[in-house]
Write a protein that binds this DNA or RNA. Structure first.
Lengths: 335, 335
DNA sequence: ATGAAAGCGCTAACAG
DNA sequence: CTGTTAGCGCTTTCAT
């Protein structure tokens, strides 16, 4: 049916290996024959069979992407699609394909990972969202399989990862608020099981602590990434003691906070989101948010993994990448 | 390194072909040897090499997914992630893998399709979002390559597709509004190049027409899927002539409409979105929206394609699937 | 019911 | 610089 390397070889009057060398762009091939082979390929509309190449090469040039699916809202969160796009951009640039799987829990995660690895489908794995105690990281590390994780792993020794400096980002936001006189600042975050939540919480605490403001545990709430969590969290906090500002770890949470504030008619409470999602400007008041550059995170993750895959010498490159954040001020912090 | 079929064969004292038959669950294998082979696999921690199988089988059990990337907001739209999840669920159930690519335009689309096909990486292709004149559909149809499209293609003859009944869904919404006395109803839609926009627009027109309401072209706006489009569209419409209701073809657009309405202080204008995204309930007023069951769309698309791939006999199954919609009423239509 | 052998399409020594 | 040969790991006739 479709032309194979043999057909091309015949057509060009060379051996299959010569054709193979042309495909691989091997330098030791005379220009003359190269031309001839290329012409033959063209004529026969030849395209290398990637499967056969993979089998012979023991490399598929594809990466496996593990998507979390635990929480309905977590996945609706634009963060993931942005990261995926970033991954794609670098992968395509380097001629890599991406496969993806959803999983509902850590056990399934591991299953998919094993399936990817055992079946030999992928050359490396990308993990989205690092948990505090992450079995996947543990597993992949133990078997020395190439992977990169989006989010700082708890034990980052000898694992590739990319993340924002979440500690610093939140620290800066809270400090900036305090510099304008805000004192009673509450915190509503996602699941405590995620590293990102903890990092941001630490930034929050450090900022308060530095200015000698006592940390009130009733002002700290963590649950999940949802508007509902933000909505109910804000109501609880307001009922406890009306704060001057509420910082959150995600725009989705902040949306819920805004709703609660509106209902309670407490519009002077400042609100800050994270991720600077596309709807943040369309809230009323428009939501101030920390832009975490999600696409860049994905891009750098793919880069870290692919580069390490292709760098046989194992040169001592850094094993992580920190993506800059930027605090975007809008109406919700200027009331 | 890892065990191959030969190792298992030796361990179990059988030939490689016997092991292969066990893997394929071939009926003509004695239970005794089957047990023995299974035990050997277990012992050696054997896992079939999917690449090698694919090469021999000429089938990869993976599907290629083409994601549109034209519009920043289009891709941030949760619709796609929901469809992807649906696709994944059925694919995983049937043991298929999914590869994805983003493209920025139709030319790139075709390139990716060719790359998938020529490289033999995938067994079939899933197209997201049908354009009115879709070169990808044309191309795939011409070469008789297996594919399914999400969204009704213009010429749906002999192509697999799944979609909502967009005409009917919009028709129902508008009719329902008119039954409660609304007369001046404006329409703000996405790009005219998409089938979905046109189908919904037709439903809108038909509903008005049936009730003898003249269609005012100034009440019909189409541009892109963004809050900005909704925001500016609504302002333009209001300045032209204040309507009683604005129907849109996407929640994102509706969010922009809500913002404009708030600014203009015209809160009695009813607003309707489409897709019933997770933020719709969190607008104020909460947004009435048509639930299109995006995950189901993805699931059925994968099902249509995979089933057709596996059904060698080409039984005359239907080539399309219509997913139900449901109008979810919230505050934005009950003012 | 099981084995031997050829082949899927490509790559990689090794020779020359 | 190019050809020969073996082999990647699995499947599949064709025998027996």
């Amino acid at each position: 049916m479709t032309a194979t390397i043999k057909d091309v070889a015949k057509e060009a009057n060379v051996s299959p290996s010569t054709v193979s060398r042309v495909i691989a762009d091997n330098p030791k091939i005379s220009d003359a024959t190269k031309k001839r082979v290329l012409a033959a390929m063209e004529k026969l509309n030849y395209h290398p069979n990637a499967i056969a190449r993979s089998l012979a090469n023991k490399s598929t040039k594809t990466l496996g992407l593990l998507l979390p699916n635990t929480d309905e809202d977590l996945f609706n969160n634009p963060f993931f699609t942005q990261v995926m796009r970033g991954i794609s951009i670098y992968a395509q640039k380097k001629g890599y394909y991406i496969m993806y799987s959803y999983s509902n829990n850590e056990t399934q995660d591991i299953e998919f990972i094993k399936s990817y690895i055992h079946s030999k489908w992928v050359d490396g794995i990308i993990l989205l969202s690092a948990r505090q105690e992450d079995k996947c990281i543990e597993y992949l590390k133990n078997i020395h399989y190439p992977f990169v994780v989006v989010g700082r792993p708890k034990d980052s020794q000898s694992v590739l990862w990319v993340d924002n400096d979440n500690f610093q980002a939140m620290y800066n936001v809270v400090t900036s608020l305090m510099e304008r006189g805000y004192k009673d600042i509450a915190f509503i975050g996602g699941p405590q099981s995620l590293t990102v939540t903890n990092d941001r919480l630490k930034g929050y605490k450090k900022a308060l602590w530095e200015r000698g403001i006592e940390i009130d545990e009733n002002y700290i709430l963590t649950s999940e990434f949802s508007e509902l969590a933000g909505y109910e969290g804000a109501k609880r906090i307001i009922e406890y003691k009306v704060p001057q500002a509420i910082v959150t770890t995600d725009d989705i949470i902040a949306f819920g906070v805004l709703k609660a504030i509106k209902e309670k008619n407490m519009q002077k409470i400042a609100v800050i989101g994270f991720n600077n999602t596309f709807l943040a400007p369309y809230q009323s008041p428009s939501l101030s948010s920390v832009d975490i550059n999600a696409e860049q995170i994905g891009y750098q993750a793919a880069k870290l993994l692919i580069d390490s895959l292709e760098d046989k010498e194992g040169n001592n490159k850094p094993t992580y990448y920190i993506v800059d954040t930027k605090f975007i001020e809008r109406e919700s912090t200027q009331l």
